[in-house]
Simulated scan of single mutants.
Amino acid sequence: MTTDPQTLTWFKSSYSGNGGSCVEWAPMQATVTGIVPVRDSKAPNGPVLSVPSRSFAEFIAGVKGGAFSAT
């Protein structure tokens, strides 16, 4: 990713409680570049994973559809 992660606007899922196990994403960057930046909310200065928008959308659809076990 060529954009500085510190300048992005990051969002957490509304399902994320205050437990600290949250993933954040920067949707505006995805809109502009087609790449979804993802990071660990506990490490905002840590590494950022860059995922193609289509792959991210398929992952979210799988989560919503119950494709991943909670155990």
Rank of each mutant, 00 (worst) to 15 (best):
S53I: 07
G20Q: 01
G20V: 01
Q29A: 15
V51W: 02
F68H: 11
V38H: 00
V38M: 15
A43C: 06
P52A: 06
T7L: 14
F56Y: 11
V32K: 07
A43G: 00
Q6D: 15
T7Q: 12
S53P: 00
A57S: 13
A61R: 12
V23E: 04
L8G: 10
E58W: 03
T9D: 13
T31H: 09
P5L: 05
M28D: 13
V36Q: 07
F59K: 05
A26T: 03
S50K: 02
D40M: 05
T9K: 11
S13A: 04
V48E: 03
S50Y: 10
L49I: 15
W25H: 07
G66T: 11
N18V: 01
S41C: 08
M1T: 07
I60C: 03
S14A: 14
M28G: 08
E24L: 02
P52D: 12
S41L: 04
G46L: 09
K12A: 15
A43Y: 03
V32S: 07
F11W: 07
P47N: 13
W25M: 06
G19C: 02
S50T: 09
A30Y: 00
K64L: 12
F11H: 13
S50H: 13
S53H: 04
Q6S: 15
T3C: 07
P5D: 10
V36M: 15
A67W: 03
M28N: 13
S69P: 02
S53K: 08
E24H: 02
L8S: 09
P27S: 12
P27L: 13
K12F: 02
S55V: 10
W25P: 00
T33R: 03
T7R: 12
F59M: 13
C22P: 05
A57H: 05
V63D: 01
K12Q: 14
T33Y: 01
T7F: 05
P27A: 11
G62C: 09
G17S: 13
T2F: 02
V32M: 09
G65V: 02
E58Y: 06
G62F: 05
D4K: 11
V32D: 07
I60A: 09
N45T: 14
N45F: 09
S13T: 01
P52E: 06
A26Q: 05
R54V: 14
G65S: 15
F68C: 08
K12Y: 03
Y15Q: 12
P44R: 07
V51K: 02
N45K: 11
V51M: 10
S16T: 04
G34A: 08
N45R: 11
T9V: 15
S53R: 11
G20N: 02
R39H: 04
R39P: 00
A67S: 14
I60Q: 04
S50E: 14
A67R: 13
W10V: 10
S55F: 00
S69C: 09
T31I: 07
V48S: 07
V36R: 01
V36N: 01
V48Y: 07
P44A: 03
P5R: 06
T71N: 12
F68N: 08
